[in-house]
Design a protein around this nucleic acid. Sequence first.
DNA 1: TCAAACCCTCACGTACAGGTTAGATTTAGG
DNA 2: CCTAAATCTAACCTGTACGTGAGGGTTTGA
Lengths: 183, 183
Amino acid sequence: MSAPAQERPHLLRIGDLARATGKSSRAIHLYEELGLLQPATRSSGGFRLYEPGAVERMRWIDLLHGLGFSLQEMRGVLENWWSSEQGPAAMEELRVLFQRKLEETRESIRRHRDLERELMEGLAYLETCRACATPAAPVKGCVHCTQDHGMKEEPALVAGIMTSPEPGHRSGRGSFVRVEDIG
Amino acid sequence: MSAPAQERPHLLRIGDLARATGKSSRAIHLYEELGLLQPATRSSGGFRLYEPGAVERMRWIDLLHGLGFSLQEMRGVLENWWSSEQGPAAMEELRVLFQRKLEETRESIRRHRDLERELMEGLAYLETCRACATPAAPVKGCVHCTQDHGMKEEPALVAGIMTSPEPGHRSGRGSFVRVEDIG
DNA sequence: TCAAACCCTCACGTACAGGTTAGATTTAGG
DNA sequence: CCTAAATCTAACCTGTACGTGAGGGTTTGA
């Protein structure tokens, strides 16, 4: 069983930290390699031992990951911070960084809302197919569907599927049609 | 100059398609390899020639990519569609799929809004550092900052940086401190 | 006819964030 | 003491979505 590291009772072993944060120990190893998190010390046998604050650091990593930071970028933030001479100046840099991320996040929200709209249009279109005039027709028929779908154009989500012919199987030289063999 | 393929005036060469969609020709090659898009034909010399509908297909790929589909998944959608016997049934499958994606998209919007809030809290906290009582202090001082930041706890974005000691450089066996050498 | 664009097919490289062995060691509990 | 569980290092594998040449053909306009 996992008895939270007895040598120093308040220290966590890697498995404890992993469970506490929902990450794998491999991930924690990786974060260490990349300079994102160091164990406070090691056991006499070499086991990593973490202070509870490591859990905060891990959450922080998760948070920044969600914001689109790469692990390298996080390392940059950390280095930048800890190598800074003046506290408030470092704070200012962070502020600028977060401000930028805030805008990116809002942009991302906008984009996702566009996608949401796109999906809703697509769904509205497909709704109408439930009352299709030719229920047993093969899909190829849909390409020339004359039914009224209640909108001027097919939504991109649906149009993109039908505008091009079905994709062939694995491509590969050898069996393509020369254009002058067609006309 | 790029004169849009003369053999059949309405056909696009790969470069035209690339420019029309903002993708690289390499990407288009890739889509073809993965069965997402086939050229309508080839020129006598082997150049890929696309119908205008290919632009729609490309946009569709982009759209689904934004929704978190992988290229393989898109291929699945396409295959599923074109191999379906009954049009409306295929439409129904699509509908279910898009419905699921719609929920995922909304979930993603929720998550991003949480991140937005997190960022705003972090920024509010850092704002107050501009009026720091000890402006010339090194960042290590911030860890024990006693200034009033107007909130009960440090926001996770800031706390995660300060709770753990600065990350060492490249980790590597050999120079860690045995726990019993400390006390 | 000729050169500048353009395109072809391999085939290997890249970045990201880990997963997955493997073989050896350490720790905790009975 | 002995064993099962946890951990250690090292090194290679995965999947995604392309990028980047190399080496050589094709188109096109002048």
